[in-house]
Each structure stands twice: as structure tokens, then as C-alpha cells.
Design a protein around this nucleic acid. Structure first.
Lengths: 258, 258
DNA sequence: CCAAGATATATCATATAATGATATGTTAGA
DNA sequence: TCTAACATATCATTATATGATATATCTTGG
């Protein structure tokens, strides 16, 4: 039917099965066969067989009464395997815990994943919206302080390309969609060594981030702190949060050769 | 070749692909083709095709130099989808955050998953071992305070069957492997309304848990707190932790019909 | 309460697409 | 440099996934 990839070492049935898994997100928390068929673009029969297989294999929960499918606990186990596989997580975790306790504010570890920042670790210290309290959320990198702090460590060329090409999405009316303005913010971040954003993902939210640099000086992750503008202003953030944040980011960064 | 399940609505290729995903865990953080073949029991060619497919579809990262495969960020996104799909998580999260802040100790939400407790939410407030700081870990239910608190809400028959049949694993030299002793502990939990365990997963660790009951009175989840026996004894736990823990568990439990 | 529409489940002949053996290319270690 | 282990590529074969269709079941509105 569709032949999107190279042949003979690409197993289409497996790829289709993965489409079912990826169909679930914030807005699709449980799906019927028909719903799955619509989202994935697969025909009824295929969805039936694939969903049944995933159910038998423990990857999909099935409500016996509504017959709808939901993600299973296996999805959490995969995340657990991820955490062990990424050495950065193990190095960062104890320091992030200390930081969160010291600040009393929500602390995150954001990682660059293509054009997006994915929050791999979240340590919420205060009630926030749900999306900010569970790991795995993915948001456009340009709109986040973490993304800006990371990009500020990349070469000017890579950085410019990112500012030009990467996706943007106005989560709030005040989300910065002007790419020139974003370029300026990143330049500031390059000069100052940290990034601050306002009202990007949600109103009255201030994000502040310091990059976790690799041995070559470039960063692929950032320590990030999210606070409410009701309780904090930029001056106090710079005074009471920034120093600890920078220390933590530096401590996580692997030692450079002297 | 192998025909383990019913036919015609079971897609073998998809099931095999899932075997590759499940091959990764604490001890297998990155795997070569040969390693994957060994763990999954699939032949070289199958592993080659399936791994390539998972890589192309973004489910496996591939180190260009070692040619080894690792879990990708997509695994975290699946967890994110899970969190949205489980209504208990949304209800529990803000209350767990409050509890963790109040206690200053690590707070977890454990859910019963077959014979195991899977820690869906972890809010570490103090440095612990890595396994206890990231969500998704699965441990035998009988060995955890969360599992005992949950089982104590089930019918005596179900409870007895669980104590008889469920898997046990001695994570420490002091892990309780005597099923009669576990039965007693669960009876105590039934009477007291909470469960306490010592040195089950790691030495010098005290676990305390209160069940989150459903509308029918039975529980499938528990709020759990893990503290060090160096800093806490049972008396102080009962006085300074237990009341808050119980309040939180009750607040998460859906209202019963009056 | 019943009928109509939607949705889930089951069946089956057909050819596509997965299979696994083999061959070639590449890396790492002695 | 040679050798062993591993990764990648190729290909004929048929087993396996496919999707159309038929039946059962649930849901909804009159």
C-alpha cells in the first residue's frame, strides 16, 4: 500500500504498530478501534489486529466494558529503562534534588530532542498545571529558556539555522513568535550564561535556565526552574535562584580537560 | 516458526519488535545487534530488520560509532501519554506535591500491576539510590508497604491467594521471604489502616504506605513514603508522617456514596 | 421499548511482505 | 598484519499479514 521507506530491512507491521502507540497524547487518553483507525490512518482490519496484538503483549490496556484502549503500565517501564540508559540522568538527579530542596521551587532537566525540549526530570515543589508536573512533555525549543540556554552554546551558524527553521507554537497570547526577538534573547543568553523567558508556555510563568555543557562546550541539556511572576521578579530571581542554578548546571557538566 | 498465540488477529512481527523494546532495563542500557539477539531469542536477521525499523521510526537511538542501540526520547513521551491517560495521576499529583513539601521526605504513588507495585509518581526530597528517584520501577508487591496496604483492602480470599502465589525476591538479606510473616503484616495493615516495612528493597530503609481506596473500598494504589532508619524510628513515623500520609491518601480516594 | 446506526469481532482466500540463510563489508583485538 | 566478531547487504521462498466481507454486539434516539 504505502512504501515510504527503503525495503527489505524495514518491517512495516512493526512501524504500523508503533503508530498506534503514538496516537495517544494529552487529548487522546483512551481510544476506540475507530478512533485509532482515524488517527493512524490505517484501515479497520489492521487496527483491529495491531491493537489486539499490543493488548495481548501488555502494551495496551483494554476497558472490558467500553472496549476502549489505554496506555498500560508498560509505558512507565519503558521510561524507567530510558532513565537508566541515559548517563546524564544519573549524574544530574542527586544535584537536582538538592537544588529543588534549596530553592523550594519546581526544578526540571530539559534535553534537546530535535527542535524540541523534552523535560526528562521534573521535581515539582509547588502545585502547578498538570503538564508541568509529569516528565516527558515536549515543547518547541525556541520558546523555552532551556532551549535558548542550550542554543546559546552552539555555533552561531547552527544557532541561526535553528532560529530560522525550527517550529514555533503560540501556547499563550504572549508567546514570542518574532524570530528576531528570539535571536536577541539567545544572544543575551550567550553573553550572560543563562536564559530567562516570560509567559511562554503559560501566563505568569517565568522560566530560567542554565545549560549543561558537554566536554566540547556545547550543551544538549539545561537545568531549568519555573516560578510564578506573582511571587518573583527578575531581580530576585537573579539574586536568589540564578547562583544555585548555575552551580548545579556546572556540577552536572562533565569535567573539561585542563 | 513459533505459534504461541491465536492466529489471524495476532501480528507476530509487531510482537517481536516489542521484545526488542522490553530487552532494555537496569542492566541492559545499550545493546548491540548480537546482544539484542541473545536477549530476545530472535535470529540475527530478524533483530537486524526490527532494530532498523525501530531506529527509523525514532524508537531507538543508534550510536554511530559503537553501532549500539539505546532507548530514545520517545520512551519518555510514551510515559507522558500514560500520565494523561490515568485519571488517578491527575487527582493525586497536587496532593502528593503538598505532602512531599510538608514531610520533606520522598513520597511515591505506587500502583498495583499484576503481582507488582509500579511506582508511577516519585517525588524525591532527599538523595537516595537512583532506582528510587525515577518513576517506572516495578517490585514484587508482597515486599512493599504499598503492596501490603493495598492487599489489606482486598477480600480475604484474594489476599490469601496473592500471599500464596505471588512472586518474591530477596533484594536484601533481610527481605521477608516467609509468606506467613507477610500474611501477618497484611493483617496488621488491615487492622491499622496502613503498612510499615523495614529493609525490604534496600537496607536501612523504612517504607510506610496508606491505600488509596476506590468507590468499592478496594484499593489499587497507595501513597508511600520512604525514609532512612538512621533518621527515623517507628514511633516518630507514626507521629510525624502517618497522619499526613493518611490524609493525603484519603483526599485522593474518590468520594464514597453516603 | 424497539429499531437503526455505529462499533466490535470473526472468517478467509490471496499475494504481499516478512523470513532466515548466506555473502560481503567493517571494526576491534592479538 | 592477521583473525575473530560483528554489522550490513542480498535474495529466493512461502509463511504471514492483509483487507474485504459477514456476523455479533453495543449505543442512541424516537
Amino acid at each position: 500500500m504505502n512504501k515510504p521507506k527503503q525495503n527489505t530491512l524495514f518491517v512495516g507491521s512493526l512501524a504500523k504498530g508503533l503508530r498506534l502507540l503514538k496516537a495517544f497524547d494529552e487529548t487522546h487518553t483512551e481510544l476506540s478501534l475507530a478512533g485509532l483507525a482515524e488517527i493512524t490512518g490505517l484501515d479497520k482490519s489492521a487496527v483491529q489486529r495491531l491493537a489486539n496484538t499490543l493488548h495481548v503483549e501488555g502494551m495496551l490496556e483494554k476497558d472490558p466494558v467500553t472496549r476502549r484502549y489505554r496506555p498500560s503500565h508498560a509505558w512507565l517501564r519503558l521510561a524507567y529503562a530510558y532513565y537508566w540508559s541515559d548517563p546524564l540522568i544519573a549524574r544530574a538527579m542527586p544535584k537536582l534534588i538538592d537544588l529543588a530542596q534549596r530553592l523550594g521551587e519546581t526544578v526540571n532537566l530539559g534535553q534537546l530532542s530535535d527542535e524540541y525540549i523534552i523535560y526528562a526530570v521534573r521535581l515539582p515543589c509547588t502545585r502547578t498545571h498538570f503538564a508541568a508536573s509529569v516528565p516527558g512533555r515536549r515543547v518547541p525549543a525556541l520558546s523555552t529558556s532551556a532551549g535558548q540556554a542550550i542554543l546559546a552554546t552552539h555555533s552561531p551558524a547552527d544557532c541561526a539555522a535553528a532560529i530560522r527553521d525550527w517550529h514555533l507554537h503560540a501556547h499563550t497570547p504572549q508567546t514570542t513568535v518574532d524570530r528576531a526577538a528570539i535571536a536577541e534573547q539567545i544572544e543575551t543568553a550567550r553573553a550572560e550564561g543563562y536564559a530567562i523567558t516570560h509567559n511562554q508556555m503559560i501566563l505568569n510563568e517565568i522560566g530560567i535556565a542554565c545549560a549543561v555543557r558537554g566536554p566540547d562546550g556545547r550543551a544538549w541539556a539545561a537545568v531549568h526552574c519555573s516560578v510564578s511572576s506573582h511571587h518573583w521578579d527578575d531581580a530576585r530571581i537573579r539574586q536568589d535562584i540564578l547562583p544555585w542554578l548555575q552551580d548545579t548546571a556546572n556540577a552536572i557538566s562533565p569535567q573539561m580537560r585542563v
